[in-house]
Amino acid sequence: MKRKITLSTIVFYAALILLAMAYLLPAYLTVITSLKAPVDISLPRSWEFPSTLNLSSFGDAFDLLRPNIVNSLILTVCATFFSTVLGSLNGYVFAKWRFPGSEILFTLFLFGMFIPYQVVLIPLFHTLRAMHLYGGLPGLILAHVVYGLPITSLIFRNFYAQIPDSLMESATLDGAGFFSIYTRIIFPLSIPGFVVTSLWQFTQIWNEFLWGICLTRHSANPITVGLANIMAALPVLLIYILLGRYFIRGLLAGSVKE
């Protein structure tokens, strides 16, 4: 069946395209500005194409930020790894091994998701100092793991809630216990859950600023701190576009099912 072009279709697509353009404007501005030579940059001509292409700002930014990118990568990968693994185990217990009080405990966990980071800032660096973790990446990783736990536990709990209980029971009858059910049944089934959670965590940690600036010494600064616009956004943007559909699913798992 061929779609007829009606007035409403035209209005519909016009609205869609206009909105898309509005959303792309900031990106356009960023890209052309970053291609301009410093002398070329001025407010009244901010929308115009650069007179000459100047790619040096990319190279400069990259050279300047290389250590920060490395830090951010180490930080993000480690923190994402630990928080998703722990979150997956927690979610497994909360979804499949409920015990008296587990729901209250879970609710108390969730609460941690919503605290403004400012509230814990001062005690956090005192504690990290006492643990001799202040200033370096391990301390920052610990912080991100801990404050990532509520959301990862939530996503995994909701994910595991969809796995039928009969699968667990069947495995119990087959002779599997707590850990063997996890490693042999639950874990192999949670790859999508891991993708979703890691993406969420990756984005959050990569973009985080306040702790990055307050909890690390210079040599351990993540990228947001050693920021230059387009460079900080690119890796996430890329990963995001590639794995977009998982991303959306993850957002949903984390927020809707509750």
């Binding site: 909105l19 898309a20 959303y23 792309l24 404007l25 900031p26 990106a27 501005l29 960023t30 500005t33 901010s46 984005t203 990569w206 973009n207 985080e208 600023f209 947001t224 920021l227 616009n229 900080a232 956004a233 996430v236 943007l237 995001y240 576009i241 977009g244 991303f247 959306i248």
Partner: peptide, 20 residues
């Protein structure tokens, strides 16, 4: 297109919009 802004850091968004 509609989702990409979400993956940006607030610092990035802020700088872009300051220009905008």
């Amino acid at each position: 297109v509609f989702l990409y802004p979400m993956s940006l850091s607030f610092i990035v968004t802020g700088t872009i919009w300051r220009w905008m």
